[in-house]
């Protein structure tokens, strides 16, 4: 095999293996976050909290932890490794709120912190709200 062929082979193989490797990392870290959440959930349910309340308490713990790690510049480093594994869980939503709020603090407390907080969370809330109203309307007529 010539060096050129080999180079070509590496070029063809590497994007796929990069996707595979990224997926493995996302699986492990994202799965670990969900497993920790399940442990917490089981504990709060055993303490007698109703299902919805236990869910909210766990979500709150995850959100506060992610924001703390964001402020300490740890979350972004984990995210560099884990990709979607840290973006897709609710902790990624919390990071998407805290990180731009911190980064754009210099633009002021209103248009910096207050507005930039919703750069990513805003679209999520907008499309989530619109989708929920459509679901609610359809449900109202077909239930």
């Amino acid at each position: 095999m010539t060096a050129k062929n080999f180079e070509k082979m590496v070029k063809e193989a590497s994007p796929k293996s990069a996707v595979f490797l990224n997926s493995v990392k996302a699986f492990l870290v994202g799965g670990a976050i969900c497993a920790v959440a399940q442990v917490l959930y089981n504990r709060f349910e055993a303490m007698g909290f109703a299902k919805d309340d236990a869910g909210l308490i766990v979500a709150a713990i995850l959100i506060v932890s992610a924001i703390l790690l964001t402020a300490l510049r740890v979350y972004d480093r984990i995210a560099k490794f884990a990709g979607a594994g840290t973006i897709v869980p609710i902790t990624g939503f919390a990071n998407a709120i805290a990180a731009p709020a911190i980064e754009h603090k210099n633009e002021g407390l209103v248009l910096g912190v207050g507005a930039k907080m919703f750069v990513i969370a805003g679209p999520v809330i907008v499309y989530g709200t619109v989708a929920s109203v459509i679901v609610g309307l359809i449900y109202y007529f077909v239930r």
């Binding site: 969900c34 973006i87 897709v88």
Partner: peptide
């Protein structure tokens, strides 16, 4: 919880890597 949670993140990772969708659009 680990397996299904991880699998959903893998769907997100594949979307990011193969479709060039930004994380905001994935969310």
């Amino acid at each position: 919880a680990f397996v299904i949670g991880g699998a959903i993140c893998v769907i997100g990772q594949i979307l990011i890597d193969l479709t060039k969708l930004t994380p905001a659009r994935i969310l």
